[in-house]
Write a protein that binds this DNA or RNA. Sequence first.
DNA 1: GATGAATGAGCCTTCATTCAT
DNA 2: AATGAATGAAGGCTCATTCAT
Lengths: 200, 200, 200, 200
Amino acid sequence: MEGNSTVNDGGAGRAAPRKRADARRNERALLDAAAAVFVTSGVEAPVRDIAARAGVGVATIYRHFPTRADLIVAVYRHQVEACAEAGPALLESAASPYDALRRWIDQFVDFLVTKHGLAAVLQSDNAGFDTLHAYFLDRLVPVCSRLLDAAAAAGEIRSDLNALELMRGVGNLCIGADNDPRYDARRMVALLIAGLRPQP
Amino acid sequence: MEGNSTVNDGGAGRAAPRKRADARRNERALLDAAAAVFVTSGVEAPVRDIAARAGVGVATIYRHFPTRADLIVAVYRHQVEACAEAGPALLESAASPYDALRRWIDQFVDFLVTKHGLAAVLQSDNAGFDTLHAYFLDRLVPVCSRLLDAAAAAGEIRSDLNALELMRGVGNLCIGADNDPRYDARRMVALLIAGLRPQP
Amino acid sequence: MEGNSTVNDGGAGRAAPRKRADARRNERALLDAAAAVFVTSGVEAPVRDIAARAGVGVATIYRHFPTRADLIVAVYRHQVEACAEAGPALLESAASPYDALRRWIDQFVDFLVTKHGLAAVLQSDNAGFDTLHAYFLDRLVPVCSRLLDAAAAAGEIRSDLNALELMRGVGNLCIGADNDPRYDARRMVALLIAGLRPQP
Amino acid sequence: MEGNSTVNDGGAGRAAPRKRADARRNERALLDAAAAVFVTSGVEAPVRDIAARAGVGVATIYRHFPTRADLIVAVYRHQVEACAEAGPALLESAASPYDALRRWIDQFVDFLVTKHGLAAVLQSDNAGFDTLHAYFLDRLVPVCSRLLDAAAAAGEIRSDLNALELMRGVGNLCIGADNDPRYDARRMVALLIAGLRPQP
DNA sequence: GATGAATGAGCCTTCATTCAT
DNA sequence: AATGAATGAAGGCTCATTCAT
């Protein structure tokens, strides 16, 4: 929502460490480059490739993002935050809790499907992505959970559902969705969400 | 089920090259070793590890299985065949076409969930796995398609469903299902299958 | 002992460049930090570590001490000067020239043994340490030479001894003396000095 | 004495794993190259340099010598063994135990002085050289100890001497001895050995 | 003057694949 | 046929040194 929440110091931020005329530019270039390279080669892309694309040296990446997970988190922070904030908003504006849930999942899927390889790494059990996983889940699971609860309370869906599991399922369904016209992740997710309905 | 019949000597095996005293033994050792290593380290495990476990030299792997995809296909051929053959059988024995579909999917999921990393590589867009993908789909999509058609004909599920897509969805849902007690792929797949029901 | 008199403003300090309000303070902080880091990580410690410890930027080090050798020299100037000045003093106060020599060597050894890695770098043939070597030798060899001469003149030691060589031998014996309780450099040096005695 | 004791299987060695027509040649090339590079650049020389000089790929080094210490030990094994075996022999052939000790030390010094950088690494407290240190000391300290004991028993030297310490002292004195005509390690060692004599 | 961001060379190590034995 | 030694391309990471602010 508010752009670069982490880097922040946006408006006032007096005490925030200044001196980033170029550093700022580099950080942005790095994020853009990483986003682009991630789309092309996945989030495991060589550090060198990202640096080259950003037009900076490799060490610059390490300075800004000590670990790969830090970089990935930074790259996708915007969307994750936007998604997190969309939950409560939808709950108010949608026709019903179930509808809010459906639309929120749609937004999440839109996000994942357009980021090649992101869904895959989200499921990776590769240690070192722990902080990445933690960030995604910490931020989004509560939101999803609240949507589920509301829909369940309204009797629109079953009540035995687990938000973490659902999110992982949705995430999984998005893997490989770009790049292959024969597979439409949105349709599959729609089936999954339809499956949440109380069974006869 | 039937050894590794498909590996070669397909049906008649007329002019099949002879001389397999030890070659055969090696091939079997290789398959067993690969299966074991795949479970431990995933299907991207170092060639050397597999060779070491099989007690053969690395070059022997390359002789028998020129590409990694060949090896993976060979390793899982049994189960894929078993799964393919189970389709028609279930259609006859199950209470209804939908029930047959459900149980067939269950078997497929059982297979994938117990093979660490297999589901992931099945979705990988990594060129070089093309033959792997082709084999899985060629063999299983028709089976799944027939089950879907039967269930649709019986009015038990929607009729706008695509077997390839469904299989990929199910495969996706199995990614990362081992090794993480917080995620139960079978439950997610059950939701997906439930979503196939005609919507009110 | 006397600040860092040799660093500049040597004797009269006629046209010495002014403006040292903070520059001075930085130089001192740098020397202290370097001394501390040298003890911890040896004289080849990363420039960054020293800068960080001094609370200054790396470039400040380069401004004050263009080469690493310059920094090392500056760090140890005090002790070297003290050692140099102790020679003549000991020659007057000691019981005999040999005793003066022995005690002077003791002081030199005390110095080296307490500076982790200094003895090692003193022997390093690494170009770039030339000025370091030169400084140590220029300053101390004449002193040692005079002590040797006096002892030889008194017939207390052999007369075929070379001060430079002796100092390097003593310096070598001090390498690795810290940090290893199984090796006592002082004892080895004592043997060496004992070996200076006229042989029967 | 018998050349390549570790690689062995020299004469009979039936059960020894064969198949080393070229591997052997490479191992030798590697040892020669390493020895040469060590002389030039010290034992910390880049793996690549050694590989290049040997005319092999880097991985070949890792195959033969998994750690750097393994390589260094292998490179100097010959001389260490020869030195170890020379001890008892000298004790029998020399005019006196002290003379045997002196000549044995001479041999050790000859070895070290001709290997640029070896003496230095022998004193390095760098972890990872532990096995290297262990090898040298395990092999040579007992030999030196016996020579010291014999000389002490004969009343030719003081009896409070420690072999490990003496060897480190001698080793230290050899550091930087090549390459600098102003420093003669042999002369310094001779002083040290002279210092072993019972003091008046 | 001081700062610390950026640079990029350099090193280590792993692994798929080829090839002589 | 089988072997496993050799190869060399990658890729990760560090650190001395320069330079814009």
